[in-house]
């Protein structure tokens, strides 16, 4: 049943004005004011200069890598994160608690540590790198390394958003589907997945957003070659090192606007999916 949407629909809970006021104040202090400082700083450049900075070939190459690798990493996490969440919710096995705790490690680890560890493992003389090298697969110091790092840091987001939803889905629903003649694939695709979509999309969006801004772990494994394995945040740091504050904020503004637009699209998609599938009953 649809609720008529008015400017301010009356809620049974009091204190809307106060709560909204606090929310806006809090968001302003924590998010909006620092971000607007970025925009103001970049306004030191003329429009022509701004455009020249943000469309320089190196900048364009870095957006491709940052957003592309973040999207691939988030997609991988959406797939394998769903699987991990599934395993953790639907099966019991020895050491389950331990595996559950491992999932959060990428959250807790300082990203520089993660970057150094990944580089050590995937470098041509590392544990995994020495076996991959003869196969012609180079991970460390290539764009592939960037994907690996971004996948690593994004894993918990998908698992932790999907897990509670999966826990709420009772096994009876699957049994009912089976009783009504659905095969396993149909049960998964037609019964479970629609309920999981919103959480999965949220997890994807979080992992993606985190990965776009990631710096610490990537710089160690990327190799940082201009035009090839240089991420946008590194370009920002590079510009700061040159004392080009305005140029650095120009790139930051592009990343902000692009991230915001992408997140808006993803969130709308999530909203649309959850209204289409989830709340029909």
């Amino acid at each position: 049943m649809a609720i008529a949407r008015t400017w301010k629909s009356h809620s049974v809970l009091p204190g809307f004005g106060l709560a909204l006021g606090f929310t806006i104040l809090y968001l302003s202090l924590i998010v909006l004011i620092p971000l607007s400082a970025t925009f103001i700083k970049s306004a030191e450049l003329s429009l022509g200069e701004f455009w020249a900075v943000v469309t320089a070939p190196r900048a364009l190459a870095s957006y491709r890598l940052s957003f592309g690798a973040a999207a691939i990493g988030a997609l991988l996490n959406a797939g394998f994160g769903l699987l991990t969440a599934w395993i953790l919710v639907r099966y019991t096995f020895p050491g389950k608690r331990l595996v559950d705790a491992f999932v959060d490690l990428p959250f807790a680890l300082p990203t520089a540590v993660a970057g150094i560890a990944l580089t050590a493992v995937y470098a041509p003389n590392g544990w995994l790198g020495q076996w991959l090298e003869p196969l012609g697969i180079k991970v460390a110091f290539t764009p592939l390394g960037v994907v690996v790092a971004l996948t690593f840091i994004g894993l918990p987001f998908v698992v932790r958003t999907v897990q509670p939803v999966l826990e709420d889905l009772e096994a009876e629903i699957e049994e009912a589907a089976a009783c009504l003649g659905a095969n396993r694939w149909q049960t998964f695709a037609r019964v479970l997945l629609p309920a999981l979509w919103p959480a999965l999309i949220t997890g994807f969006a979080l992992a993606f957003a985190r990965a776009v801004g990631e710096y610490g772990s990537v710089v160690f494994i990327a190799g940082n070659m201009p035009m090839i394995s240089e991420i946008s945040p590194l370009l920002i740091i590079t510009k700061l090192e040159q004392h080009e504050y305005a140029g650095a904020t120009a790139i930051a503004v592009v990343m902000l606007v692009a991230s915001f637009a992408l997140l808006l699209v993803i969130n709308s998609l999530q909203w649309w999916v959850s209204h289409r599938h989830g709340r029909k009953q």
């Binding site: 110091f141 710089v219 190799g223 940082n224 070659m225 201009p226 590194l234 740091i237």
Partner: peptide
């Protein structure tokens, strides 16, 4: 620099 495979910061 063509022979440089990694540019650390």
């Amino acid at each position: 620099f063509k022979n440089v495979p990694v540019l650390d910061s």
